[in-house]
């Protein structure tokens, strides 16, 4: 049952139409940031207002929604966004990646390979990948128009010259369809390869910065690198203490005053769907 007094999906129909038009342009321009009239939402910027507006504009009564925050379904941000959509749309929600038709995410891509018919909606704090190198919006617009991304290559080169390797471990810049430089949002670089030729549609919403962008299905997404320094996604060299996975992305936990460390899967649904380690093994 939806909350009385709200339109389906919270946003009014004019706003949805405006966002829907921006989404269609975004899909036709893979990786290009389309400006849109971001609305004030009932939670502050930084809590996923861009992703929520994208989800609100695409969601329908038949959808099943999953929301994750750093891979987990049970964190504050994920729980409150899921409850919000349950109240303003009444759609079914789920923790299971396989059952969801729309997955809104903050800072992770699910471990399970997504399929056609699913839509992955990213919450994006800063859509402009060149922002730390060139703060002027007028200038970055021109750089995107000219596909002039030398500045980013110099930054990666300087990392290698100073540290021997690229030190960016999250929000690692990608080139979409060999044309636009794009921020994949602050997902770990470990997740970057999953964006490449993903069968699901990927939509990105930045509420404060008022930008929407997209990666259509089966589109080439290449992490920037050099021939002699190929892109290497990093992962903690450990196994999950709950399920024993050596393939998933891990969170590090400090579990006592002595600094003892445990690693657990960041993707809670992936971890829960695997058989737990036997007690005796510990």
């Amino acid at each position: 049952m939806t909350e009385a007094g709200y339109n389906f999906g919270y946003l009014d129909e004019n706003t949805k139409r405006m966002i829907r038009r921006a989404l269609l342009q975004a899909v036709a321009l893979p990786g290009y940031q389309v400006p849109f009239g971001s609305r004030e939402m009932p939670l502050p910027y930084g809590w996923g207002t861009g992703g929520i507006q994208v989800t609100a504009s695409i969601i329908g009564a038949d959808d099943t929604l999953k929301v994750i925050d750093q891979g987990a379904d049970d964190t504050t941000n994920a729980v409150s966004i899921r409850r919000f959509f349950n109240r303003v749309t009444g759609v079914a929600t789920t923790d299971r990646t396989a059952e969801a038709t729309i997955i809104q995410t903050r800072h992770r891509v699910p471990e399970m390979t997504l399929r056609e018919g699913q839509v992955l909606v990213y919450q994006v704090p800063m859509p402009e990948p060149l922002f730390r190198l060139e703060p002027r919006v007028a200038e970055t617009k021109r750089m995107h128009a000219l596909a002039d991304y030398g500045l980013m290559h110099v930054k990666l080169y300087e990392d290698i010259a100073r540290h021997g390797a690229v030190t960016t471990s999250y929000n690692y810049p990608v080139l979409v369809n060999r044309r636009y430089l794009m921020s994949p949002s602050p997902i770990p670089a470990f997740d970057n390869p999953k964006l490449d030729r993903m069968p699901a549609l990927q939509l990105f919403g930045a509420g404060r910065e008022k930008r929407i962008y997209a990666v259509p299905p089966y589109t080439e997404v290449k992490s920037l690198d050099f021939e002699d320094h190929p892109f290497k996604p990093a992962r903690a060299d450990a196994a999950c203490v709950i399920c024993g996975s050596r393939a998933s992305y891990l969170d590090e936990l400090i579990v006592d005053d002595g600094g003892k460390r445990h690693f657990v899967c960041s993707d809670t649904d992936y971890c829960a769907s695997r058989p737990p380690l036997q007690e005796a093994a510990e």
Binding site: G9, K16, R20, L24, I58, G60, A61
Partner: peptide, 11 residues
């Protein structure tokens, strides 16, 4: 509801 269904088809 109808515009949402149409839009998802176009998307």
């Amino acid at each position: 509801q109808d515009s949402q269904r149409s839009f998802r088809a176009v998307l």
